[in-house]
Nucleic acid binder design. Structure first.
Lengths: 338, 338
DNA sequence: CTGTTAGCGCTTTCAT
DNA sequence: ATGAAAGCGCTAACAG
């Protein structure tokens, strides 16, 4: 502890504690001259108010929590960047918690947030988050919650997400405009509603351009690179091989690179690729890969902004805001529009 | 606030507040049966202790702060991952602050930490951090500080860093073992002592292998990609052109790729490249790029571990620990050892 | 084994 | 314009 508190300040100044407190908060009850003296002394002694005493008294923490599955991930770290920006503007502190995709860890984390440690929570659920009971109880205890990116599917609540349908649509149209006639969609099995919506976008784009959606062009991949490469080699050796690939995960774009390399298929001349990605930097090294990216920074900013609205207005039970943001298409020289 | 506190619990149980408090902390003064009753009621009412009241009373926050220049950066986000791991084990909360490379922002952040909000601070200085006065004052007020990666150059203090000399040495040897005879070192001007040490490692590796260190092979680059590409094209068109490139920043490796592409120089057949990098994932897309990487996760873990030692032992003024970790060499198929 | 009490540092009424 | 005093929820000494 810093050792210098209101008591010490007041002794030093020959004033009462309460006067000093008021002076520091610029109360109208205090004379200008006294204020000046107090401020100077506070500066001199390097006084910093004790946040615990203040928090206890005011029942406010000036702190929010961010709960995410992982941080060593470009999407989440950029989102945090946006969150921090807004939090800093508001003068709030940010506690970060990682669940590592573990529902139990998520639950215990949320539980710890209940004692009044934070004024609000931003959370992106972990994959196997079965129940949201712990979050309900937190919310009921008066802590507003905003979900971002990974949101509960069963319940109405404040959310900030990306428009997955639009992402899928936009990515597919990008390939179509680049001249592709036969576009494969690569997905990983057992995925969330997110994946379904992206594929709906893909299908809608095909339909709009009066193209047939061949089920053979929808490829279920695994999590293992080598087996995916084999799968893709088979796909790319078909008589009716695709001339465009839409990878729903960046990893699958990489597998495609390997496959093309092995069977000497030229990118982008013979095959154009677009990939979902949260790793802007990756495409730097591979100038031929266009990517469709979640607006991570915007998502962070919007979530935090929404949360602060709820904190300040305290009306978080009434109107439920659901913000949906458009994805970013980052074009590379692979598949420039003709 | 959750609304349920010790008072409510005690009323519900017909016990005194202090008995409940003791029971919850498993004090030997309380009978087993009472403890059981209390625990059950606490569970039932979903009691969570108020961290501010406890912090105020115990003069302890169970919280540490992490102050970093940016988070949308693979090194720092992975380092935070390591920090969080240790903090979670210790039951500590983690506050994160971003300075955005702004010395003033760093200073005001540190100032806010002085009131007892945290029990310790992990910090990586921003580039233009001229003075460390604010940190001294924080430390003097009893808050232990550990510096990681970007540490003060003028003062003895607890640090966790990467062995830059070893990094430079190891990277250069990697190229030598891959058969390179003439290795260029690309650096960006006006850099820190870090850069110098890496180059010392490069020079030492050459010397050890009885190779001449040609000053023409040490290239000062800018921050602008296109001008670097021009510079590199000139370098690679020399009669005595290098057969290996050691890029001290990942960006420069990318510029090299562009340059090679323009003058039709084949990688890795005609030119092998190794690069410093904090972006493990980038090399996934470019299988021919070997990288030398800071052990970010380890740095995070080590820093946090050291900080907790200081917090727990309270002897942070005596022995000053300076941990130096080895970098990781990630080999790709570009320049496999012969 | 349980209860009473003081006080952590601050804010906020209520007096003066 | 200033000060006295109560109390936020908790812990820890001290009584009983």
């Amino acid at each position: 502890m810093s050792g210098v508190n209101l008591k010490k300040l007041s002794e030093e100044l020959g004033l009462s504690i309460s006067s000093v407190s008021k002076a520091l908060r610029d109360s109208y009850e205090i004379s200008a001259e006294t204020k000046k003296r107090v401020l100077e002394m506070a500066e001199k002694l390097n006084y910093q108010p004790n946040p615990f005493a203040r928090g206890l008294r005011k029942r406010k923490s000036i702190t929010i929590a961010v709960v995410i599955p992982e941080i060593a991930n470009n999407f989440f770290s950029v989102a945090i960047d946006g969150i921090q920006l807004i939090a800093q503007q508001k003068g709030y502190h940010v506690l970060t918690y990682l669940t590592h995709e573990d529902a139990q860890s998520e639950e215990s984390t949320v539980k710890h947030l209940q004692g009044g440690r934070v004024d609000g929570v931003l959370i992106s659920l972990c994959g196997d988050s079965a129940s949201v009971g712990h979050l309900l109880s937190l919310n009921e205890s008066g802590v507003p919650i905003v979900f971002f990116d990974r949101v509960p599917e069963t319940r109405e609540c404040p959310t900030v997400t990306t428009d997955d349908f639009e992402s899928g649509f936009k990515a597919t149209e990008h390939l179509l405009h680049a001249g592709c006639k036969r576009i494969a969609y690569l997905r990983v099995r057992g995925h969330l509603s997110t994946s379904q919506k992206r594929m709906d976008g893909y299908l809608a784009a095909l339909k709009k351009n009066k193209l047939h959606a061949d089920p053979k062009m929808i490829v279920d991949c695994t999590n293992e690179n080598m087996s995916n490469v084999e799968l893709l080699k088979k796909l790319l050796k078909l008589k009716n091989r695709p001339d465009g690939i839409f990878a729903s995960v960046e990893k699958l774009a990489i597998s495609t690179y390997y496959a093309c390399n092995e069977i000497k298929l030229k990118i982008p001349e013979q095959l154009k690729i677009i990939s979902f990605s949260n790793l802007r930097t990756a495409s730097l090294l591979s100038p031929s890969l266009s990517t469709i990216t979640q607006p991570a920074f915007e998502i962070g900013k919007e979530s935090a902004t929404l949360l602060f609205q709820m904190i300040e207005k305290k009306n978080f039970n009434n109107r439920i805001e659901q913000v949906v943001l458009k994805s970013d298409l980052i074009e590379r020289n692979s598949s420039k529009r003709k």
